[in-house]
Nucleic acid binder design. Sequence first.
DNA 1: TACCATAATGAGAATGATTCTTAATCGTGT
DNA 2: ACACGATTAAGAATCATTCTCATTATGGTA
Lengths: 152, 152
Amino acid sequence: MNLDNSGLHNLIATKLDEVGQMYTQKRRELVDALSQAGPCTLPELLEFSDGIAQSSAYRNLTVLEEMGVVRRLVHHGEYGRWELSEELTGHHHHHLVCNSCDVVIDVELQTHIEHLMDEEFERAAKGSKFAVDRHNIDIVGTCANCQETTQA
Amino acid sequence: MNLDNSGLHNLIATKLDEVGQMYTQKRRELVDALSQAGPCTLPELLEFSDGIAQSSAYRNLTVLEEMGVVRRLVHHGEYGRWELSEELTGHHHHHLVCNSCDVVIDVELQTHIEHLMDEEFERAAKGSKFAVDRHNIDIVGTCANCQETTQA
DNA sequence: TACCATAATGAGAATGATTCTTAATCGTGT
DNA sequence: ACACGATTAAGAATCATTCTCATTATGGTA
């Protein structure tokens, strides 16, 4: 599979360079996997990447998270999940979360709904003097695969 | 503090009785704590409750979760959090999540916004043939306490 | 009230995802 | 080629959560 992630990679390389971090092959592989596959667990990332050690994967993801390159998601499955940061991809999105197999799928909502929600979230937070930063929405249910499986 | 949770307790007692589970004093204490304090971590629950063992707290919460009495939340803090289920309280709500101290505060949104969101979530899920069950919204930012603290 | 069967409790061991430690290796600039 | 700092990987350590099991409490029954 040939990915053209050169734009993405250049962006990240610059970002890491600014703070004296290296954008190594292993780190590129993690980013490639995430850009292909969407939110991934660590075992999934280990499959994609070629022979990276578990501890290195965790460490690199932590570094990349601190740099704002990736974001860690936490749901009910046994593993955490990682995705490219919105800051990097430029796509604000939310998640379909299957409560049968724990898979996570990206979705985008219509802009005018996002605006309405932002306004309402601000209003709702005001009562608690809570300063809103961002919002995460999980649409929970059953993915297409699991619907088929349970019918069989 | 005198709570009148008799209605709540009766409801739960009936629910548990139907499946041959006991609604013990320890379980009542957990429910009382949750009904007072909102989403709680396990250490918080251990403080509220009077001398319940850690392992018993976990086991009881799991049982109560299976009965649909409580729900487990998972965020980025070190501990999971537990709250009374919406099915039980009858209040659909979402969460303000402080990314500084990890506290979780309940909020309710306006009904017409909930309707708009539900429609949009259905629409967004359709593309992935995803069957929507419910939605969770986290409004992430800084709670009032942490805003004060950082100013000092 | 005494007895029995079943469920709940608590102490501690086990589990397992994630983080930490450390020695070896790699990259980059000189 | 050298030296320095960053990265890697293997395995140990951490720690929230789950499991085990012996003890205790509960509810039903006669």
